[in-house]
Simulated assay, not measured.
Amino acid sequence: MKNKLTLLLLTITFIGFAQTRQDSIQLDPQKQINAAQRILSGNSGKAVTVGAYGEMLYNQPEGDNGELDVQRLVLLFGYRFNDQIQFVTEVEFEHVEEVFIEQAFVNYNVADNVNLRGGLMLVPMGLINEFHEPTTFNGTERPAVDNAIVPTTWRELGIGVNGRFDNISLGYQAYIFNGFKSTESDGEGGVNGFLKGSNGLRSGRQKAIQSTVDSPTFSAKLDYYGLPGLRLGLSGYFGQTQAEDDVEDLDGANVGISMVGFDARYAYQRFTARGQFIYASLSDTDDYNSLTGRDLGSALMGWYVEGAFNLLPMMNKQKLFAFARYEQYDTHASTAGSLQRNDAYNRTDITTGLSYHITPGVVLKGDYQLRDNALSGGDVKNRLNFGIGVWF
């Protein structure tokens, strides 16, 4: 009995010391940090830090059966080797049955404003790719711009540097990554292409799964937080896609990518707003489409604006945000050669709903989406969504 009691006390003590601090979950954009940043900053004096976030959703397209899904559950683990070196990893379970490693990197703090980082990391582009924990954004589903254009969750293997200069209110990141996978042999004398018109670059994410490496890509982001309540981001990504050895010398096997993004977040008392713009220019898409039979556009573009208002008094710990978001995104913003633009890929979503934060780290969500595209007679079903999100 004594041994069991000792084991129970040790377990409780470990859990108490291992959790990241609850008060680090912030809605203020200038103080907001993501899951990996909480692990890195919240384990002072601890060897091991653990946490998690997850989403359970209900989606009801108009006229169709609804779908219930544990969309994702992500387990967070951090280990502090010493005051300078830490390891962070995120293990993601999607739809209960699929398992991925979302991040796994070593962070080496070499100076007050300089961290070296290497491993599997998020590409710093836009808002949601780095801040996709369910309590950090409105809407049951992530914005479609961050699905079809960015594309979230975008992570690759790489190495680089990051830090903050608080005296000038500027954060920076700069990394070298492996790139999107574009082509491989189909084993029958032809070539498979992973990039396509409907979702742009999304299917080319390698996710560190035996990733093909042909040439490195460069990614960087600057964050400015010098004005009260406002946070601005400017990001860029440049390089070539990756092709397997047996096809990389063929015309069109690789595609050049130049992507830039601008994002903004603002909060004042009970009002919050955010928005972002992403544009990607792709080269050699005519040769790529001829080689693979795909319909990849030569430019991708997307943007959205969102406003939200807390319906509860400011002194309340609970918050109830009513929000509306307008987004437009086109994976055929431009096409090259003989490829004709497909208006079905020029899409518009209007999302409005509620986000009820019953405590920091737990949110209940409900929204309705009006969805459309530029194709005459195009049939895009509106959708009703509900969800529960947690993060600790």
Rank of each mutant, 00 (worst) to 15 (best):
N3G: 01
N3F: 00
K4E: 13
L8N: 05
L9I: 01
L9R: 10
T11K: 01
T13W: 01
S24H: 09
I25P: 05
L27D: 14
L27H: 12
D28F: 00
A36P: 00
I39M: 14
A52D: 05
A52R: 01
M56R: 15
L57F: 02
N59Q: 15
Q60P: 05
Q71L: 11
Q71P: 08
L76D: 07
T89N: 13
T89H: 00
F93W: 08
E94S: 03
V99W: 07
V99I: 11
V106E: 09
V106A: 13
N113W: 00
N115F: 02
G126Q: 05
E130L: 10
F131G: 03
E133C: 03
P134Q: 05
F137E: 02
N138W: 11
R142V: 10
R142L: 04
P143K: 12
T152W: 15
W154M: 06
L157E: 12
V161H: 12
S169M: 07
Y172G: 12
Q173H: 15
A174T: 11
F177T: 05
N178M: 06
K181S: 02
G193Q: 07
S198L: 12
S198E: 11
N199C: 02
R202P: 06
S203D: 10
S203E: 12
Q206A: 08
I209T: 09
V213A: 14
D214R: 04
S215F: 01
S215D: 12
P216D: 08
K221R: 15
L222H: 06
Y225A: 12
G226A: 02
P228K: 12
P228A: 09
L234K: 10
Q240G: 02
E244F: 00
D249R: 08
G252S: 11
A253S: 14
I257N: 13
G261Q: 07
F262I: 13
A267L: 14
R270E: 08
F271S: 08
T272L: 15
Q276L: 04
Q276R: 03
Q276S: 07
F277A: 11
A280E: 13
S281W: 11
L282G: 06
D286K: 15
D287A: 12
T292A: 02
D295T: 06
L300C: 05
L300A: 07
M301L: 13
W303F: 10
Y304L: 07
V305C: 09
F309M: 04
N316M: 11
Q318I: 00
F321V: 04
F323T: 06
A324C: 06
E327K: 07
Q328N: 14
Q328G: 07
Y329N: 03
Y329K: 10
H332W: 02
Q340S: 15
N342S: 13
Y345C: 02
N346H: 12
I350L: 14
S355Y: 09
I358N: 08
I358R: 03
V363R: 04
L364W: 09
G366E: 11
G366K: 09
L370A: 07
L370Q: 09
L375S: 06
V380I: 15
V380Q: 15
R383G: 02
F386N: 14
G389K: 04
V390Y: 14
F392S: 08
F392N: 12
